[in-house]
Write a protein that binds this DNA or RNA. Sequence first.
DNA 1: TAGTTATTGAAAATGGTTTCCATTATCATT
DNA 2: AATGATAATGGAAACCATTTTCAATAACTA
Lengths: 149, 149
Amino acid sequence: MPGGPPWWQRRFKGYGYRLTLPRQIILDVLSRTSRHLSAEEVYMAVRRIYPAIGLTTVYRTLDLLAQMGLISKFDFGDGRNRYELTAGPGSEHHHHLICISCGRIIDYTDFIDDEVEFLSMIGKTLSKKYNFKINTHQLQFYGLCDKCR
Amino acid sequence: MPGGPPWWQRRFKGYGYRLTLPRQIILDVLSRTSRHLSAEEVYMAVRRIYPAIGLTTVYRTLDLLAQMGLISKFDFGDGRNRYELTAGPGSEHHHHLICISCGRIIDYTDFIDDEVEFLSMIGKTLSKKYNFKINTHQLQFYGLCDKCR
DNA sequence: TAGTTATTGAAAATGGTTTCCATTATCATT
DNA sequence: AATGATAATGGAAACCATTTTCAATAACTA
Ligand SMILES: [Mn+2]
Ligand SMILES: [Mn+2]
Ligand SMILES: [Zn+2]
Ligand SMILES: [Zn+2]
């Protein structure tokens, strides 16, 4: 894993950030799961590979990666933030169904092309009207999953 | 203000909840602002009218009102939840532009009809596919406001 | 009006996240 | 490959929004 996929190595250099082991391992952990991990969960997963990791570093790195756009930060309402790889192979743009009873998160990509087209159309008008530079968007549906309804 | 608009009086009875002064005043505060208040902000506003109010009661009541669907709960990323009247006169369905630099929140209603139609179309398909009962949705655009770009 | 019980408020506890700061590791330069 | 400047790290403590606990109070019902 050290060295890691070159596509994010360059990204780090570009920002003037150092490519450290903790950062690579955290990114590695996130790229190997399809779940939405909390900082604590990332911490525990990284610890198995790199026991010296500190929770503080996990928080800092998650912030950094989110700010670089490599990962996305979500609040699904369970009192902690959750993170997910945004860019790179194996991660496609999607939105979420959130069960308000058991907390289950369902990724969906249905209609995603229509959605992105529709949202970028809206976004364009909003940008103009409010003179607002749009970077990202989030769309989520809240309700009850099959087990909870 | 005691007694309050009858349309939420009935709502309370219907749920079997008591119509208390703190609850009415909190609802009253939220109905008189277009801002997105945090629990602390609600607490301070209510205190001016009803100094005996406790912060705990504010939290409890906000949960209750959200669960009743009278208000909506948001996390705009500033480390605290924010609340806004959902139902009733003067509050129309809308979505948000969120400035990631200064935290400013812009309500917009442009295209809201098209948007709602589009989203309910998507929602219908998702409901069927995932056997998921959708209650609400949120759509937000993140970026930089005119002052911050 | 009285009784039942949901609701309230203060204080303490909780728990996710941030801050502090001395130590360590990365990377450009010799 | 060794050096130096400094970005990055990790542990402990602080922070702070939210929740829990429990005795007192207020809302509704009969
Ligand atoms: Mn996802
Ligand atoms: Mn709003
Ligand atoms: Zn569920
Ligand atoms: Zn701004």
